[in-house]
């Protein structure tokens, strides 16, 4: 199945005089995990914000599931789920209350939201802690609730912005398994990360972005083969080769 579910064409966005995104085009297919890699400040989060309808591009077009973001942002929101880089939860409330609330905001009825909350908490392995306040959770547990909240709208396309930052290997592995399971159920995923081995393991195609421009796009093997035999080259070497070794702040 290679049907394109997301099409981004020539996206541009400036903040003042600074071009944050400068003519980026790519597609995401159905049931594909697409990796978007880049150093800090490369423009990854700006792209996700434009794709997820919260930031209007200066130019370019986005279609998700055949719907234009510019013309039908509400319709597009019905198709997407966003798991932001920072935790986006109400810490005073229980995991269940958080999920039910975001489910209701996504358009689910009361009973549907409760059922979906239970399903997603089970999916991320936290059903037994459903009634506990999120503030009592460990970092890894919070990340898993953050992911579960993004799934409450039962999205066709999931945006995952560095979902495994600062968590233990067990939680990270659990998140990987969850993502792979979601893909197998038909979901498309846009995945950003700084961990190259994660991208190598999960993504079927990867786009490398720097200074707001897409500088390389292909499967992990294609990207590696550009600088050497794929079996001997790591994705990190590819990344450093493309974006340089200078420190980014």
């Amino acid at each position: 199945m290679t049907e394109e579910f997301l099409v981004a064409k020539d996206l541009r966005k400036r903040f003042g005089d600074v071009p944050a995104v400068d003519g980026v085009s790519f597609t995401i297919r159905r049931q594909e995990i697409f990796g978007l890699l880049g150093p800090n400040g490369a423009g990854k989060t700006t792209i996700i914000r434009m794709l997820s309808t919260t930031l209007e591009p200066d130019a370019g077009g986005i279609e998700i599931g055949g719907r234009s973001v510019a013309e039908d942002s509400v319709g597009v929101r019905a198709l997407i789920g966003v798991c932001p880089q920072e935790l986006a939860l109400y810490p005073e409330l229980s995991a269940r209350d958080n999920l039910v609330f975001f489910g209701r905001m996504a358009g689910l009825g009361s009973r549907q939201a409760k059922e979906a909350a239970a399903e997603n908490l089970e999916l991320v392995g936290l059903l037994d802690r459903a009634k506990d306040a999120v503030r009592k959770f460990s970092g890894g547990m919070k990340r898993r609730v953050n992911l579960a909240a993004a799934l409450m709208s039962r999205p066709h396309l999931l945006f995952l912005d560095e979902p495994t930052v600062g968590i233990d290997p067990q939680s990270r592995n659990h998140i990987f398994e969850t993502i792979l399971r979601l893909r197998s159920e038909g979901m498309s995923v846009l995945y950003t990360t700084h961990y190259m081995e994660e991208a190598d393991r999960l993504c079927s195609r990867i786009g490398v972005i720097d200074h707001g421009r897409l500088i390389s796009l292909g499967t992990p093997a294609e990207l590696k083969s550009a600088i050497g035999p794929p079996d001997e080259v790591t994705l990190e070497q590819v990344f450093l080769n493309l974006t340089g070794r200078n420190l980014r702040d």
Partner: peptide, 14 residues
Amino acid sequence: RMGTLERLLTTRLT
């Protein structure tokens, strides 16, 4: 501050 604004604005909430 909690990051929930961004999440809310990607739901059907106007």
